[in-house]
Amino acid sequence: MDGPQVALLGYGEVGHVLADGLAPCVRLRVYDPAYPSGSTPSCELVARNADAVHGADVVIAVTTGADSFAACAESRPHLKPGVLYADLSTGAPGDKRRIAELLEPDGVAVVDGAIMAPIPLRGLATPVLASGKHADRFAAFAGGHGMDVTPIGGSPGDAAARKLLRSVLVKGLSALVIEAQRAARAAGLGEWFWEHALETVTEADEEFVVRLLRGAGQHGVRRVHEMEAATRMLEELGVPRTMTEATTVTLDHVTRTGTPPIPGPATRPTT
């Protein structure tokens, strides 16, 4: 087969999707220590990291964030100069910078990639942000093979920062919904609260978000007392109250430090 030689490190959920999408148009070798070597309908699984990355034009790492640096260190002796190494793991910005600091002196073109949506929903076309001076090069490769990569320039770690800031919001909301719904069920109000939660989320707009920030600043003391009452209620219900207690601590801190500024022309008054 013609086309670039590509190594894929990691064969979990993301790795399976990328392998299925890329295999028809590139020469693909996949390595994951959790999977034995052999052929699958979509790719060739190899026994060692070196077997995957040796001679590759592009390496795409989709390991866990905890394994990302070890994967790049294991790859390093076998990477040819000029190879494009795109780390798409969910790692901290500092982890992405360490990867660049290790590989770039050897002439490797390092890209920090951040997958910005659940990959089962859109498959190969899931939006990815790419940072670093070689982000445009990775975007060109990816776009030519069915991926949706947006280069943002900057340095390795910049894409990861955007991903993890989104995680603070979205995963935090997930934890809040879990805790609140558990409390609602324990109080015999599960169905009512579920409908209320859906209504609150689906009707949210910019004014709603602005009000969350400004209201915390203007009514901080009262809201701290309100959340202390909520904490006592969850304790009485026998429901874990981690997020509720954390909310109380955050709002109490706001009473002393204020809220962060609102970017842009968000000037609507609090109601």
Rank of each mutant, 00 (worst) to 15 (best):
Q5F: 00
R268P: 12
L79W: 13
P105R: 10
A197I: 15
H253S: 15
E236S: 13
K171F: 08
G172S: 08
S68T: 12
P4I: 01
M227L: 15
V111I: 04
R76F: 07
G82Y: 00
Y85A: 03
L165V: 08
L169F: 14
D106A: 10
T242C: 13
V201T: 12
Y11Q: 00
E206K: 04
D51S: 13
M147I: 07
A19L: 08
E195Y: 10
G3R: 04
V168S: 06
V201M: 15
L173K: 06
L9S: 03
G188V: 12
R166W: 07
R48V: 06
G55M: 10
D2V: 06
A204H: 10
R211D: 15
A229E: 15
T255D: 07
D106T: 03
I262N: 05
R268D: 15
S37G: 15
T202F: 14
A52H: 10
A142K: 02
A204F: 15
A114Y: 01
P127Q: 00
P120V: 05
L251T: 15
P265I: 11
P36R: 05
V58P: 11
V83A: 02
T257S: 14
R241D: 13
G264R: 08
G21H: 05
P269Q: 09
P36V: 09
M233S: 11
